[in-house]
């Protein structure tokens, strides 16, 4: 563990608390992509199956359980409690365009041909693109509530902070995980446009609006 990974994980935690706070205080999941949230449940469940087979640390176990539980809770909020505020007609990204290629990539790039490794690899690839339905929705509506942009910023910062973590681990432990690094760079790259608007508008006190 190093500070980059630790703050990355904290940022990830913060993003989830911000999202739950947004939904429960505004009593609305308007502006949030259900598809992206469903993909995160898939990512966490397929990656953290090893909860039952290998123990890393108490920190690791608690975080894994939290990510699975909180992502399921968000689906519950969107699908049951605040269902009327969820508008599927603007959440139109086709999931098969994401899931299909991730299955293929996992079959080609993995650290072993067994179910655990294949699902782990699949989850890494899927996580890297899981935000696309959300970003696509943002692009379509052209604007976002400020709290939603804070959620996205925290979520983007999480994987961005993993990059210095990997550099640090390479030099301190000789640890290299090419699958995570490649997918992590892609994942962070997808946020660049968003971050540009976030830093130049939202953090200057303006509303998040995309040029028409």
């Amino acid at each position: 563990m190093n500070i980059f990974r630790f703050f990355g994980d904290l940022s990830h935690l913060a993003s989830i608390f911000i999202l739950i706070h947004k939904i429960t205080t505004t009593r609305s999941c308007r502006g949030i992509s259900f598809k992206t949230q469903a993909l995160y449940v898939t990512v966490f469940v397929t990656r953290y199956l090893d909860l039952f087979t290998s123990y890393v640390s108490l920190y690791n176990t608690v975080m894994k359980i939290f990510f699975i539980a909180s992502s399921c809770y968000i689906l519950y909020l969107m699908r049951v409690r605040y269902r009327p505020t969820n508008d599927p007609s603007i959440d139109t990204f086709r999931l098969e365009y994401l899931v299909g290629p991730c299955v293929v990539l996992a079959l080609i790039f993995n650290y072993g041909y067994n179910p655990t490794e294949l699902l782990w690899s699949f989850s890494i690839f899927l996580e890297s693109v899981a935000i696309l339905p959300q970003l696509f929705m943002l692009q379509r509506t052209g604007e976002a509530e400020t709290i939603t942009t804070h959620y996205l910023a925290a979520l983007g910062a999480y994987r961005a902070l993993y990059i210095p973590n990997w550099i640090y681990r390479y030099f301190s432990e000789g640890y290299v995980d090419p699958i995570s690094v490649t997918a992590g760079l892609v994942q962070t790259g997808l946020y660049l446009d968003f971050f540009y608007v976030y830093f130049t508008k939202v953090l200057q006190g303006q509303k998040f609006e995309l040029p028409a």
Binding site: R5, N60, M63, K64, F109, Y111, G112, Y113
Partner: peptide, 10 residues
Amino acid sequence: SESSLPKDEL
């Protein structure tokens, strides 16, 4: 590519 890495990251 058959050597499994330790999965200690989240």
